[in-house]
């Protein structure tokens, strides 16, 4: 861990001002990922700006349109167990509780969850090349041990996956990220928040240096009747996903009127394919349609040496999870 100074900010504006003057500073909230990265000498900020003392950012409040605003500093656990989240957005609650451990969820914040970095083995080992960690050094995972790596949307420069569970549900629920910076505030639709690696894999998302996530908005209609979150991994709990899936339907008169299917553990961002969701609309929910949707979602998937199985695994998981979403209580 490198040498750094510490300051606690009182307001988002103050935090933004401090960081705007120092390109090597970093915000810290829950710390569960950043401190880990600092111990690995991957993140080396020379100054930490503690956001935890900023009042008001840890609240979960109803929006006038019956949506819900999740404060960026609200802890993952407090979000998952919040009565309004449980009632209106149970898919989000399930996704959060499928991630990490109870201890980590008690510390980790909602804003931080969006900003967590990949668990690619090579990103984490500074003795190996990694374009995300050190642009231009190469991607050791591409021909290396890549069981946990991407099958969709990757590039020759980076095959890392984004490890969050929570964000898979947020993607499916069409959330919006509220951001505050030195130049003001803006809103980023969730599906535009994270990036694909392309030739700039060092950029995980479209947040600018100095911008702070203040909250995440969930639109009304949490799809709380027909939903399911499925996570497949190498142990029963406390492991990152090989494939995870957030599925939600709105059904009317025996037909699917709205379908959301987002995948985690397969790409550099939560993966949604509009074509597949449109395909399911106005159809009766049936295994055959789900199988076709799965094929559409995995279109263009490329398996690497150690993770090709994830393509078929993802297809099967999509079908199963669609069926489960029809009867979420079972």
């Amino acid at each position: 861990m490198n040498n750094f100074t510490y300051i606690a900010a009182d307001t988002p504006k103050q935090a933004a001002n401090i960081i705007s003057q120092n390109p090597d500073a970093a915000f810290i909230a829950g710390g569960t990922n950043l401190i880990d990265l600092m111990k690995e000498n991957i993140a080396k900020p020379n100054q930490l700006i503690d956001l935890n003392k900023i009042p008001g950012l840890d609240e979960i409040t109803e929006l006038p349109d019956a949506g819900l605003r999740l404060g960026a500093l609200a802890r993952n656990a407090d979000t998952a167990y919040h009565p309004l989240v449980q009632e209106r957005y149970p898919l989000l609650a399930d996704a959060i509780l499928a991630g990490a451990s109870a201890q980590l969820r008690n510390m980790a914040t909602n804003g931080g969850n969006l900003l967590q970095r990949t668990r690619c083995y090579y990103f984490y080992d500074i003795a190996t090349p990694c374009n995300k960690r050190e642009p231009g050094s190469g991607c050791a995972a591409y021909d290396g041990y890549n069981r946990m790596n991407a099958i969709l949307g990757s590039s020759e420069h980076c095959v890392a996956v984004f490890p969050s569970d929570m964000c898979v549900a947020l993607a499916a629920l069409n959330a919006t990220v509220n951001v505050s910076g030195a130049t003001g505030e803006r809103q980023i639709p969730f599906n535009e928040f994270h990036r694909l690696p392309g030739d700039t894999p060092q950029l995980d998302n479209n947040l600018q240096h100095g911008e702070i996530i203040t909250s995440i908005d969930l639109p009304p209609g949490g799809l709380n009747k027909n939903y399911s979150y499925l996570k497949l991994r190498d142990r029963t709990s406390y492991a990152f996903a090989l494939v995870s899936i957030a599925t939600a339907f709105e059904l009317k008169d025996g037909l699917i009127v709205d379908a959301r299917i987002a995948l985690g553990g397969v790409a550099h961002k939560p993966w949604r394919v509009t074509e597949a969701e449109e395909f399911l609309k106005n159809k009766q929910p049936a295994k055959e349609s789900f199988t076709q949707a799965a094929t559409l979602i995995l279109k263009g998937a490329v398996g690497l040496k150690h993770n090709a199985f994830k393509i078929e695994l993802a297809k099967r998981a999509i079908v199963r999870n669609c069926l489960t979403a029809l009867n979420p209580d079972k």
Binding site: Y6, A8, I28, G31, T32, I35, D36, K39, L48, D50, N52, A77, S101, A102, Q103, L104, N106, M107, Y238
Partner: peptide, 26 residues
């Protein structure tokens, strides 16, 4: 020392956390 084993679990304001992933100054 990386939040992956839970041996460092303590209670902060009654809630359990990994004490290895937070700074004393925080």
């Amino acid at each position: 020392d990386h939040g992956q084993c839970g041996a460092c679990t303590v209670l902060v304001n009654g809630k359990r956390i990994n004490s290895c992933l937070t700074l004393a100054v925080m």
